[in-house]
């Protein structure tokens, strides 16, 4: 109760301060949109947002791709630290398979279109990559084995491709005595397209990998699973705190927030 009252007080103060900030806002002195419009011709693309993202403020985008790669590197490290049970993902449902068979080619086409459209109208690498990842996730839900995760070396290379190409282009410009990320005159459009292509592939693979690298449901310590689903590969499992599934009677301890999934109190018993 005290926590709710404190939270309410904090949020009211917070909202009040922000409201004052909005009401008292001065008129901006610097007109950046005009500067963007004035230099758009030299940016190599026609769409102002893409120009800002991949030319004027390309350094931000470079670091943003580094953040994305970093997230998947941490997920890879944790996957290595905590081996998962064999992957049993996939619903054996003919209808789902049929629908996905029709849908996935369409999604790939959409991704390609979004990538291409980015130069002139809304679209771009992240949107295209997200659609690619969605196609991958649906294939995985349908239980289709995806290529690209074996061997791991190739997988890692695919993840790193976007940042590597982006960094290589930027460094090439730096070596050519320009500035870092300063595209040579006349090449900006082509280089941006090449970067976007690499980014799309890497972003798609990264989002899909992050989805894949969470432990599978078979390893859920509170779920009702039969002994066969938890094979002996991961003996270290819930012993770390010694609590295991003991708390599964508390519905809030379910991984889903509804708390209506079946639970088994002794799920932490050694396999």
């Amino acid at each position: 109760m005290i926590r709710v009252a404190l939270a309410a007080a904090a949020c009211t103060t917070f909202a009040f301060a922000l409201a004052v900030a909005l009401l008292e806002r001065p008129v901006p002195a610097v007109d950046l949109p005009a500067a963007v419009a004035g230099t758009l011709g030299a940016s190599g693309v026609e769409h102002p947002i893409t120009a800002v993202l991949l030319n004027f403020r390309s350094y931000d985008t470079l670091l943003e791709i580094a953040v994305l790669l970093l997230a998947v590197v941490v997920a890879l490290a944790l996957h290595e630290a905590q081996p998962d049970s064999p992957d049993r993902m996939g619903l054996d449902n003919p209808l789902l398979r049929a629908v996905i068979g029709a849908l996935v080619p369409l999604m790939l086409l959409t991704a390609g279109y979004l990538l291409w459209a980015g130069a002139t109208r809304p679209g771009g690498a992240f949107q295209a990559g997200a659609v690619l990842a969605a196609a991958g996730v649906s294939l995985r839900l349908a239980g289709v084995a995806l290529p690209g995760f074996e061997p791991p070396r190739l997988w890692h290379a695919g993840l790193a491709l976007g940042l590597a190409v982006f960094l290589a282009v930027g460094t090439g410009a730096l070596l050519a005595e320009g500035g870092f990320l300063a595209y040579p005159t006349g090449w900006a459009g082509a280089l941006i397209l090449a970067i976007e292509l690499a980014l799309t592939l890497s972003i798609g693979l990264t989002l899909l990998s992050l989805y894949r690298l969470a432990p599978p449901n078979a390893d859920d310590p509170n779920a009702a699973v039969d002994g066969s689903a938890r094979d002996g590969r991961h003996g270290s499992e819930p012993v770390a705190t010694g609590r295991g599934g003991a708390a599964s009677s508390d519905e809030d301890e379910q991984i889903g927030m509804g708390g209506d999934s079946p639970s088994r109190p002794d799920a932490s018993a050694p396999p």
């Binding site: 900030a21 806002r25 901006p28 002195a29």
Partner: peptide
């Protein structure tokens, strides 16, 4: 809040334009 008030993100640009008023102070406090 700072970009909405001054239209720039560069630190030196903000230093040149920023005035001591409520929006700026809320932004800096946050």
């Amino acid at each position: 809040l700072l970009y909405g008030s001054y239209g720039t993100l560069a630190l030196d640009g903000l230093a040149a334009h920023a005035a001591p008023q409520a929006t700026t102070q809320v932004a800096l406090a946050l």
